[in-house]
Every structure is written in C-alpha cells, then in structure tokens.
Design a protein around this nucleic acid. Structure first.
Lengths: 214, 214
DNA sequence: GTCACACTGTGAATTCTTTCACATACTATA
DNA sequence: TATAGTATGTGAAAGAATTCACAGTGTGAC
C-alpha cells in the first residue's frame, strides 16, 4: 500500500474517469502521453502517478485500458463499495444528489438528512431523507464512513461534529467555513466563492503570468 | 503587483471571508496565529501570504481587521466590480445561482444561459436566462470576463469554446471533463467526483498516514 | 525614560512536487 | 534471429511551497 499525496490521488481518480470513457469508445490501449494530453498534464507525470498502482505498461503498446481501470480501482475503491451520507437537502444538496445518483456503483449516496420537517421522509433522487436527529443512528446502521456537508455556514461545524461522533472519517464540505475536526478525520473543502474569486483574479492577470514566468 | 501562486490567492480569499465575519462581530485587530487557527494553517503561512498584499501588522496589536480587508480587496478585486455568466441552468446551475445571489457585490452572476427553451427568458434567482445562441452577444454587451460552466459533460468543451470566442478569460468548470483552451484562459475545475473519491480514500487510510508520516 | 515582551517580516532551510533524461524492455519487420 | 525504433519505469535534478528561526520593532508596565 504505497503512499500517495492528495494531488496524486486526485489525478488517479481523473485518469480512471478518462479511461472509462475510452473503454466505452472501444479503445484498448493508451500511451502515457495520450492520457497526459487528455488530463492536461505531462507524460512523465502520468507515469509517475501510475507507479502508485503498480505500473503495467509495455513499450510499443502503452497501457491496457482495461487493466489500468482495474488496477486503479483496486487502489482507490473500498473493497466492498462504500455509502456516503449527505446533510443539508437545500438547492445545492439536491443538485449534488442528482449529480451522484446512479453514477458510481462503488461510492453512492445512501442517506440524506435535513432539519426541515417538510423534507423528512421523502425520497429524493432515489435516496431517503431522514431528520438530522437520526444521523447517529442511521450512520451507524449503514456503516457510513464519508459524508457531504451542504448545510448553511453557521450549522456546518455542529453538523461535522455530529457526523464525526457517529463515526464518519471523511467529510466533503461545501459550506464556506473551515471545519475544525480531529486529525483522524479527513476534510476536503469545496469553496465555490474562493474558486470564483481565483478565476476572476487570474482571468485578469493570470493568463499573462503564465506567459511571463515561462 | 507582486506575483502570487494559486494557493496563495485562494488563501487570501479565505482570509478575507474570515475577516469579514470578525468585523461583523466587532473585532478590530487580529494576530497571525489567530487567523491561522481559523483558516486551518500556520501563523508563518498567514504572514507569508499577507506579504503579497503588503504587510500591515504591528507587533503587540497584530493586524487591523479593517485595513486587512481593504488591502486584500485592492489586491483581489477588479477595480470596478465584475460580472460573471453561467451556462447550464440545471439542478447544479440553479443551486450555484442561489449560492452566489446577492452575496458578493463586487463579483456577481449577471447572465444565465441554457439551451432548453422552457428556461429561456425566465428570471432565476434574480438573473435573466438567455438562449445559448445569445452567449456571444450578451457576453460582449455586458463585458463579462468570467463564466461558470454547469452543462452536461459532453457539451462542456463546445461551451467553453463559445465563451472564449466571446472574450471570456476565466472559466469555473463543474463539468467532469478537462477543458482544452488557449494559454491565455484560466480554468479552475471543480470536480466533485474526484473530491468525493479523495475523501473516501483518505477516510480509510489518510488519518493514519498523517500520524505515521509525522 | 527604560525594560521586557510578544509579534511581525523575511532570509534560509526543509519538504514536497514536478520534470528531466536515460537505461531497459518490448514489438514489428525482415 | 537480429535490428531499429519507441515507450516505459525511475533515479536524479530542478522547481515550488511550507516551515523555521531570528532580527527588528512597537507597546505597555513601572
């Protein structure tokens, strides 16, 4: 089980998605430089990243798309699939449920939670919505290890604490506040405000920077 | 106009948001280590980041919240505000429009586009929805420099090309495909599948990794 | 007015990431 | 079977980002 950095792992996830598309198109082999072009990186980086999953390429033929998907899967996926929970079934929460609905068989949203009684007990995008009071019970019962937080900013910290108490070890946080949790919990923030501000800044200056620094 | 890396800039955006909250609470001064704790970083990093905006701290008093917000604003914001466009008014697009509606005065969504005729000409979260055929005209008329892409994956590349042709220089891409655009266009990808897979992976191994590597 | 303290600003060191470059290996061809 | 050509896998170099550590400085106490 080799160590990989976050960036490494993110790219492996990306490669797998690109490879799945290639496979659907009937392509059976691929070179590192082709995959690099699709992913927007360099060939050396692709090969480096693939070292983590145990490289499988052959000269003159490149990598087998099928084998690569399989190896990345062994590396990335939980052995028997995994269920995630989502807390906060507002606009964003529902959109994310729709986004993930029926997409990845090995990692799907299995439970939703909201404090609004009008949402509770409804089935949204194929997923039952429970009251937030049931988080601990349902998370334990379903063995949920990972949760998505789409509650308003002021509720995010308390939500995170409840989830961690229930045994969740990974959080995908869409609320625009950094969460304070223990070191055994992994948090990934998706901060759309920050992202949009970055884009606006580099749209003004960034294009040039890249030219200049080269 | 000092150079800042993407990560630098992202953190400046985050600091500003934290500072705004502090200001609302009536706090007037703050130390680098306090800001670091809130942002989840180190004091040295906060100070380093603030060098970009011209440091303004004083020993014994730290930084003035008001001055810092102002300096970051001068550094980050377009001088006269900026309007963004969004293409793709599905579940995710609408959620994002709601998310940004009336939040940042200096950077707001001013036009939405969709190919579905039933959405066109409606006003959604305070923003007019135009047909995609009007992208070039509206983008030029409004002087839009930045766009958010929330169309299905297979339409993303063509959408990006249309936007760039119309003069957009920055893209925030929610579609799960890397966009291929010229070097003068800045692209930020928000890849929720990758993010969730990362969380699931590190929820299983990551907590331990951090312990072990320390 | 002077002293002691705690924090800032920043060169230097460290750590992490990416790229280079080449020895090795495989395939196709003749 | 030998040869030529091209891609892989990976040590080593280069480049970024982060952290260290300390000189400099403003403040409050006395």
């Amino acid at each position: 089980m080799p160590y990989v950095s976050e960036k490494n792992l993110g790219r492996l996830s990306l490669y797998r998605r690109l490879l799945n598309r290639l496979q659907a198109e009937g392509i059976r082999n691929i070179y590192s430089h082709e995959l690099a072009r699709m992913a927007g990186g360099t060939a050396a980086q692709v090969r480096r990243d693939l070292m983590a999953v145990g490289s499988l390429g052959s000269p003159k033929r490149g990598y087998s798309v099928r084998e690569l998907i399989e190896s990345i899967g062994i590396f990335l996926d939980a052995p028997h699939g995994e269920g995630a929970a989502i807390v906060g079934v507002g606009n964003l929460g529902r959109a994310i449920m729709a986004y993930f609905a029926g997409r990845r068989p090995r990692l799907s949203i299995v439970a939703a939670f909201d404090s609004d009684p009008s949402k509770v007990n409804r089935v949204i995008h194929g997923c039952r919505c429970y009251p937030v009071e049931d988080i601990e019970r349902v998370v334990r019962e379903e063995g949920v290890n990972v949760a998505i937080i789409t509650v308003p900013a002021r509720e995010a910290q308390a939500t995170a604490e409840t989830l961690v108490r229930a045994g969740v070890r990974g959080l995908l946080n869409f609320a625009p506040v950094p969460l304070r949790v223990g070191p055994d919990v992994y948090v990934e923030d998706i901060d759309m405000t920050m992202a949009l501000e970055k884009v606006a800044y580099f749209a003004r200056r960034g294009g040039a920077v890249e030219e200049i620094t080269k």
